[in-house]
Design a protein around this nucleic acid. Sequence first.
DNA 1: CTTGGCTGCCC
DNA 2: ATTCTGC
DNA 3: GCAGAATGGGCAGCCAAG
Length: 865
Amino acid sequence: MPSGPSLPPKIDLAALDSAIESIPLHEDIFKFDPVSQVDTSPWPRAPAGDGSGSLVPSTPYSLMARAFTLISSTRSRLAITTLLTNLLRVIRAHDASSLLPAVYLVSNHIAPAYDGVELGLGGSILNKAILDVTGVSRARMKQLWNSTGDSGDVAFEARKGCKTLVQHVPLTVSKLYKTLQLIAGIKGQGSANAKLAHVTKLLVASRGEEIRFLVRTFVSHLRIQAVKTTIATALAMTFSLVDGTATESVEFSKSHYLITREDRKGLLATPTKQSERHSPARLTLMARLRLSERLMRQVRARHPNFSVIVPALQEVGLDGLSTRVPLSVGTPLSPMLGSITRSLQDMRAKFGERAFVSEFKYDGQRVQIHALFLPYAVSGKDGAAPDWAKRRREAVPAEKGRWVKCCNGDGEVWVRLFSRHLEDMTVKYPDICDLMPLLMGHGEATADASFLGALPTARPSEGDAATTASTSLLENPAASAAPPVKTRSLIMDAEVVAIGLQGEPLPFQTLANRSRKEVNIKDVKVKVGVFAFDLMYLDGKPLLKTSFRQRRKALQTRFPQFNPPDPLIARFAHVRSCESTDLDEISAFFEAAQASKCEGIMAKSLDHHWEAVEGSEVRCTTRAFHTGNMKAATGETEDGKAGEHLLEKLDDEVADELVLNTEEGEEDEEREQDAIGKGVNGRGKALLSTYEPDRRCESWLKVKRDYVEGMGDSLDLVPIGAWHGMGRKAAWWSPILLALYDPDTGGYQAVCKCISGFTDNEYKRIFAKFAEGSELCYDPRKREPMDEYELGGMSLPDVLFRPCEVWEVRGADITLSPVYHAALGLVSEERGLSMRFPRFIRRREDKSVENASTPEDLAVIYRAQ
DNA sequence: CTTGGCTGCCC
DNA sequence: ATTCTGC
DNA sequence: GCAGAATGGGCAGCCAAG
C-alpha cells in the first residue's frame, strides 16, 4: 500500500465500477458525449501536471479493460473503431496526459520501434507470475493453456475463485505505463526477478477483467483486432470530433477536419435507416472523417512515432499536423512493400502498357539509410564554427545515430540506419555508416580509380577486389561518368547483402551471423554490400510523390556505384535491373536472379498514369501530370476543361495527396518536366509510381520462385506430431510437426513445423481425425514415444501422431538446421536440414507414407541450391 | 566459465 | 516471412 | 482488398543455472 504524506483519497470501488460500467462506449460517435455522459467523480486522482498541486482525474485501467472487453465481443471493424474512438475521447476530455499512454497500451508498444525499448517479458516469466499470484497447480495451468490458448485468459481463469482480501487502490493507465517503462529499463543480473516482482505486484492489484488484458499487455499481444490502422483511425476521429473541452484549440471555421457538436446534431455516423445514410449533412461529415483518417495514416506512415504525433495533435490539432510532423531525416518512414505475384505472366499483365523495370530481389536485410551532412564552417566563416556542438544537437532529432567525420575535413555526416520494421540498426553496420560521407561527395578520394568499381554479380573472378571491380565495371560503364555532387541529406532504400572476398553475394544465413552490437568497424567479420533501389528524400526535399522513374534516375546519377578504397568500408551498388517489358527478356532476367542467389525479382511501375475505369471512353493524350502539383494536373489539355474534369475524377487517395502536399514545398522543375501521364476524358483511375509508405502496392510486384506453381521445391511430408494452437487456433492442432520418411530405417525424421496454408476446414478435419487420445494421436508423456521418430533437438510436441498421411509442403529454400536432424550426415555431420517459410499446399491422397520424401530427396534439393 | 532457456528481431 | 478469414 | 491474427526457421544477445 502506498504511504507518505500524499496518500490518495480513499476510492469507492463500487462507485468507480458503476461509473465505468455506465459509460456508453458503444454509442454512435456523433451522439456520444464524453463530457456529459461520463462521471469522473469516483475516478482516482493524481496531481495535475502543471505543478499547481491540484488533483485531477486519472484514467482508471478498468476503463480500458472495459473497452477491450467490449471490443472483444465483436468482429465488426465499425464497432471496434467506435469503441476505440469513444474510449480515446473520454481520456482526452478528462485526463489528457493519459492519452499517449493509452494509445501505446492499445498498440502493444511503449515506444517507437527505433527507440530500442524492450519489455523483455515473455510467456515464461508470465507463467511464473500467474502461478505465484493465483496459486494454481502446474497441471491446471497447462490445461488452461490448452483450452484457451491465451496468456490473459489463462490468468483470468486461474484467478477465478481466488479470494481477494485486500481492497486495492485502483490501477491507472498512467501508473501502468510508467511501470512498463520501468520494467523495460531493468537490465543485468537479477533483472528477471526484479521484472517478475513488478509484474506480480500489478497482477495482484488488478481487479476483474483487468488481469486478462494486463497479462496480454505484458506479453505485447493484446489480441483485440486493432493494431495499427484501427488506432490511427480512432485517433483521427477523436481529434475530428469537437467535444467542447478546455484543451481543444478552437478554429472550426477554417478546418478541413473538425466536426462540432452543432454540425452533428441529430445525425448518426452509422445510421440504420437507409434514408439517414444518404442525408447530405451526414455525408459531408463522413467525408471529413475520411479525410482525417487519411491524413492520420499518411502522417503516421511518414513519421511513425506516437510520442510525436499525439502531443502534436493535442497542441495543433489535425489541421496543423502534417506541417508539425513531417517526413524527416532521422525518423524512419514505413517502407513501401510489394504485392505477391504468382507468375511472370501475371506481373506482365498487371502493368499492361505501362512502363516498368524489374530488379533483383537480393536475399539480405532491408535497410533505410538516413544521412545528413553538417559542415564545420557555416557560410562566411572559416574554421570550425564555435557553435558546432549546438548545431549538431539541433541538426538531429535526438542523440541517436552516428557522426562520421568526412575525410576532406569539411564536416561530419550523421547517419542512422533502420530495418524493415523500423528498428535502429546503426550500430550493427559501422561499415555502412562510414560509406556515407564518401557516397555523399564529402570524401577526398572520389577521383580515385578504385572508386569506380562495382559489385560483381555472382561471376567468379580471380584476383582481389580491385580486379573484380574493374571486371564488373564493364557492366555499367556509366558508373565512371558521374562526378560526385555534394549531397546535403538523403533517405535511401536498399538491401544489405553479405558478400565474399570477390564481392559475390552470400546466403542470408551468413548475414544473420553478423553481430548486432558492433563496437568497432575492425571487428566486422561478415562483409556486406549495399544494393540501393530507391531514394525517398534528397537535399531537403521529400521525393515520395515523384515518379519512380525520376527517383531512380536521381539515385543512379547522384550516387554511382563504387567500391571504397578502404576494404573495411561497405561497397555500394544499385540493384541489378532490367528495363525490358518483353516477357522473354524478363524470364531470362528472372533466371539470372536465381543464378545470383536472389529470392526473385521486384517489378516496379516507372511513371504516374491515368487509366480508364471500365465502360468509359478513353482519350489518351500525353501531358504533364504530377500528383502534388495542381498546376501540372490542371495544365495544358486538349479542350481546356479537361483539367478541371480530371481533378473532379481524382480518387480519394490522390485528392488527399493534393491537399497534403501543398505544404511539402515547391515542385522541382526537372521533375515536372519529366512527369508523364495520360489524360483521360471520362472516369479515371490513378495508377501512380509514387513511394507509398506502409503499403503493399500494385505498383511494386514481387515474384519469387516458390510463389510460382510448379517452380519452387516442394516436399511430401508426413505429419507426426502437433501442439495445441493459440488464439484463434486454440481449438485445433497448430503447429504440426512434419517429417521425412527414411526407407533405410523405416523411421521418420522431423524436418519442420507447419502453421500456414491450412484452411479452417482443414484444421477441423485434422483435429477430428487425430483426436486426442485416439488410436492415431497420443501424449508422448504418458505413453512411450515410438522409437522410429527422430525429433532432433526439438522439444517434445504435445502429441504425436501415427504416420498415416502425406502432405505436400512448399518452402522457399532448404537451410542447415541447428535443431532438426533430417538428412543428418548427408550434407553435414553436425547439422540436419530444414525448410524456410514452410506452408501446407494439399494432402497427397495418392501417396502412402512409404512414398513420402526421403532424406536423400531433401539433400538433393539442398545441393542444387 | 560454460551451457541452455528466453526474448526479440531478421527473413 | 506466408497464409487465411471476416468485413 | 484491407486489416489482423497465428506462427515458420534461425540468428545474436542476455541472463540464470549448473
